[in-house]
Design a protein around this nucleic acid. Structure first.
Lengths: 181, 181
DNA sequence: CCTTACATGTAACAAGTTACATGATTAG
DNA sequence: CTAATCATGTAACTTGTTACATGTAAGG
């Protein structure tokens, strides 16, 4: 459900084609609400059917026509009304925790591999987030409101991944102790 | 995909009916891999079709027969082989971050409401987790391995929610400052 | 020659949610 | 009288993933 509002939000900043929007999702929404081009095109079609966005075809030679979407008044209204309502929290579903739940069928070696794998995913993610923070949000106090909100969204990613890595340290301490038995 | 392995893991501890398993998911797997009874029954049926669990009908009067499921050798093998392979991480999808992304269409009042709502979800969750930790995992060093793994799964929840609440404080500080302008 | 960027989609499938269905027994 | 517990499911729907389809132009 949130996908359509993410779409309305970007298009509200600047009208764009499905292709452009897909780029934006890759670059700036990947850690908020990832979506593939297939899903984006489908949802843009629906939004258009419902009159929440307008569409203008821009003819091209040799390629499919570009379709430029812009939010309509009804679209802005729908987005604002969604923003007013507190949203439910997505449930946690973690394959890694399912593994811990399997208990003694999970041997020490497999656990160690899983820990390494997790670290190899999260550490680079944290580094990337911190680089972005350095580069774009160095003086948050001076930024206009919508940039500060984006910074806070990034902060959410940072604290979450830091917590994940702290927990990995706990888990590794346990695994190392078990190893030396 | 992880649902079936969560099912195999519980049934490997103790054989049980779909109803029993649903209880266990409510009590102990809610924060790891939540699942409804509809999903559980469907997946148990599939696991049975594939020979990963065996089923024995226990006739009852007035109620549907109970069906007792137990993991087969093939089931144990499938679970172990899954445990060996590092699992991909589920993508982050957060409606709350989508809201921040909407920028100036999100007014201060709506933001404040969202913060309160989030805190009212997470704070009780954290309290519950801490109570469970106190009650069951008071002396982790003395526990057998599979309990320690469950403790570590709970720790994951604790550090994640603590991080979420820390972030909410950051967000609230921003909202309060904006308010006083 | 090969890959990447551009630009749009369709179709099949998997996973999860919500609504509906049945019917006895027990606790308040 | 009402709600909860026990015990199983089916069906419709939504969301998201993966595979497939088409065709040009530019850069290494």
């Amino acid at each position: 459900m949130a996908l359509r509002y993410a779409l309305l939000a970007t298009l509200n900043e600047t009208p764009a084609t499905g292709y452009d929007v897909t780029q934006r999702f890759r670059e700036r929404l990947a850690n908020v609400w990832p979506a593939s081009h297939q899903q984006i095109y489908k949802e843009l079609g629906r939004l258009h059917d419902e009159g929440l966005v307008s569409m203008q075809a821009l003819p091209q030679a040799g390629k499919p026509d570009r379709k430029r979407y812009a939010v309509t008044d009804a679209g802005v209204a729908a987005l604002i009304s969604w923003l007013q309502q507190p949203q439910p929290f997505p449930p946690v579903r973690s394959p890694m925790l399912v593994k811990l739940f399997a208990g003694d069928l999970l041997d020490d070696a497999a656990l160690a591999r899983e820990i390494d794998h997790a670290r190899s995913q999260w550490q680079p993610t944290l580094n990337r987030y911190r680089e972005i923070e350095q580069a774009y949000f160095n003086e948050p106090g001076r930024l206009p409101r919508h940039f500060r909100l984006q910074h806070l969204a990034l902060r959410r990613g940072i604290v979450a991944v830091e917590a994940a890595l702290d927990w990995l340290d706990e888990l590794e301490a346990f695994a190392a102790a078990a190893d030396s038995d």
